[in-house]
Amino acid sequence: MRALLQTVGLAVAWPGQPPVLSGLDLALGPGERVGLVGPNGSGKSTLLLSLAGVLPAAAGAVHLGGAPVRAGVFNPAVGLVFQHAEDQLFCPTLADDVAFGPRNLGLAGAALEARVAEALTVCGLSELGERPVHRLSGGEKRRACIAGVLAMRPRLMLLDEPSAALDLRSRRRLIRLLAGLDQTLMVASHDLDLILELCPRVILIDAGRIRADGPAREILGDAALMAAHGQEVPPALARSRVAGWPRERAIAGGAA
């Protein structure tokens, strides 16, 4: 399978600082959903910004669909959902905000309206198009950000902490929404249960380098690996392990 996204020896550094990321080689296939995990400051957000072409590569390269991603050059094939929804919503109404990208792609009139309506419907926001963005709830704002990116029909979507500060119902709704998308997804999150539910593959990064890349259950379930990089086995995996113990041992443990 030919990779949709590929990085080769990618290094990223802020001006005058040592590299935040270095020597990153990774490839994502079309339609793949990949979780990006790691401790605070490990470089997750920086990686997403670099993949989206916001930050330039200090070394190496990023290719999307075989073409290089150049920093600062508009590339509608990749969409980034920022960690803070407030960073992304800048138009007065939700419909205006969702229309912003497609309008910049050259859509107008009925085609633009149809694109906006489609994105709002997918994100369950079709009733809220005329609502001012500052009057949306936290969960609605998060889905509004996704709608704004989806309306541009990107091939790759990068999501930075999509479930941060969401209540349980909003988080569940978000997971359902993301699970139903056809796009290739890369999701950076500390919400390991969300990653486990959404992403069959996980990349663990720490101190700017990839430390593990493989099936989500194997990596997230490796207590030693996770502990070595300041992480914990997600509760859902820990629970399933306890439930999977031999019956006698579980009963004995319970009796003790």
């Binding site: 910004l49 989206a52 072409g53 916001v54 600062g72 508009f74 509608p76 990749v78 969409g79 980034l80 920022f82 803070h84 407030e86 960073d87 992304q88 800048f90 912003f100 990208g101 309008r103 910049n104 792609l105 050259g106 859509l107 107008a108 704004g148 990116v149 541009m152």
Partner: peptide, 21 residues
């Protein structure tokens, strides 16, 4: 910092890319 992020978000969605009708 917030304004820089907003500017990045706008550019990512094609602002000033010269493609709009």
């Amino acid at each position: 910092r917030r304004a820089e992020n907003i500017w990045a978000a706008m550019r990512l969605r094609g602002h000033a890319a010269g493609l709009a009708v």
